[in-house]
Design a protein around this nucleic acid. Structure first.
Lengths: 260, 260
DNA sequence: CTCAATTTGTTCGTATGTATG
DNA sequence: ACATACATACGAACAAATTGA
């Protein structure tokens, strides 16, 4: 048994889809460049260890996407690059987060006025007295690119109910003079689209998402804001220069810092 | 046609696998806790918009993984948590990267002495005169957790061929007195396992990976090091406090900085 | 104890998709 | 293009175990 059959047993994704994914990746990454003639079907057959028809099915998928062009008697050629990806850059400091979010277009799809406390891991502070759950979708034009579940301290929510139900919460919280944000914990992992995310982001159920969690902890060690951003995999990237010093608490986010 | 059939058409992963992934995620995330009785098959049928048998197939997968326990007449219960995940924390500054890598166990699986230049995007500097490609697998104990394609400036490689073929390259480069690292560009995206990655990391072809690219640019704006780390999705997490000032160029990495 | 409601387990039949040679 | 084998998904009907009234 060849190695691909083994892999197939592991993942259960139809073979020709897997093969197509790999070929798409090769085009994206530049390993197969536009205009290149790719290997013959026979060679690919050998490389992937699958039947001829399976390769052809994979090529057909990419042909429909406009990435490949198969010509009888000549060969198969790369005819394009996939549409621009990874256009969303995750912000690298708190100011940047706020300014990038400030003008976002959001649509609240669900509100649970008195929600159970979010699951907080060890370092994410103590739960607040109560939370309100705000579920929203973030748009870039007509395209949804993120789904957000925000657990907002109920006390904060009640102070500006109207505003919080229509605009991004983060910028407003930062403006509040009596709220001190001591920590802004961010966690990025790879998640999976559940039915709700899948529908709102218009992706397949079970497709990978970039899950970005942001928890704000105040000066009493209380998590006043806990949000899970589920980004569409294709519009997510995090870029930074590890040798550059980001301007962390530049603005008056943490008043203690500013005073000190 | 219901919404899930639509989603299914979009991503060709078998439905019951998709459903299983989502349910697994719910257990991982704590939304379904150990001992909990989950929704009835009928309720799930409605929520996911799929047939009874499909839900049962998904439950069967998780039962085999030891996560669910279905009892006739009573219901289906969460019977365990998946093995520890996200144990690998991506480093947040350059020193941390180096110290975290220093003692890694790597196995070189492929060397291409004179490799074509890597694909460099706009801000990643100019290509060096020549590159050597080093493909390695990083282990934690017996388990592979990352596959790395490293394009190393050929000039650097030749200076310490022996060392570079057995130990992580980064720490050694930093030690070199005459090499000035001006930038360390890091890019994190979500990728897809191709046949090689799939085999080396022992995951299914086409499964998502955390792709972490690191490009070192020297004082002549030359990319002397360009590495793509493909992490197993389950052992990847990036955690940071956006309000904390990372110590970027603490050590003598960029001699220009230290002098100035 | 019995009955009814609930919930999972099992089995058909049918249609379509996937992969091989 | 064809024949074959197996996997996927649906809907529906019925069986078996559990629970509580």
């Amino acid at each position: 048994m060849n190695k691909l059959s083994l892999n197939y047993d592991r993942s259960r994704v139809p073979l020709y889809i897997q093969v197509a994914s790999v070929m798409r990746q090769r085009i994206e990454s530049g390993r197969w460049r536009e205009g290149d003639k790719i290997s013959t079907i026979e060679a690919l057959e050998t490389e992937f260890g699958v039947a001829r028809v399976t390769i052809r099915q994979a090529i057909e998928i990419l042909r429909e996407e406009g990435l490949l062009d198969a010509r009888q008697g000549r060969g198969t050629f790369v005819s394009g690059r996939p549409k621009e990806k990874h256009w969303l850059n995750l912000a690298n400091d708190f100011d940047e987060v706020i300014s990038s979010i400030k003008n976002n277009i959001i649509r609240i799809v669900h509100i649970e006025e008195e929600a159970p406390a979010p699951f907080l891991s060890e370092n994410e502070g103590k739960p607040a007295d109560g939370y309100t759950l705000l579920r929203s979708v973030q748009y870039s034009g007509d395209e949804p690119f993120a789904m957000v579940n925000l657990y907002l301290s109920r006390r904060l929510f009640l102070r500006e109910r109207k505003r919080f139900t229509h605009l991004p919460a983060l910028p407003r919280i930062v403006e509040m003079d009596d709220v001190v944000i001591r920590h802004a914990y961010q966690t990025v992992t790879i998640g999976v689209a559940d039915p709700e995310i899948a529908e709102l982001l218009k992706v397949g159920l079970g497709e990978p998402t970039a899950d970005c969690r942001l928890v704000l902890v105040d000066d009493h060690d209380v998590a006043i804001y806990a949000a899970d951003f589920h980004y569409h995999r294709n519009c997510f990237a995090l870029r930074r220069d590890l040798l550059e010093r980001p301007n962390a608490a530049r603005s008056g986010v943490d008043r203690k810092n500013r005073a000190g």
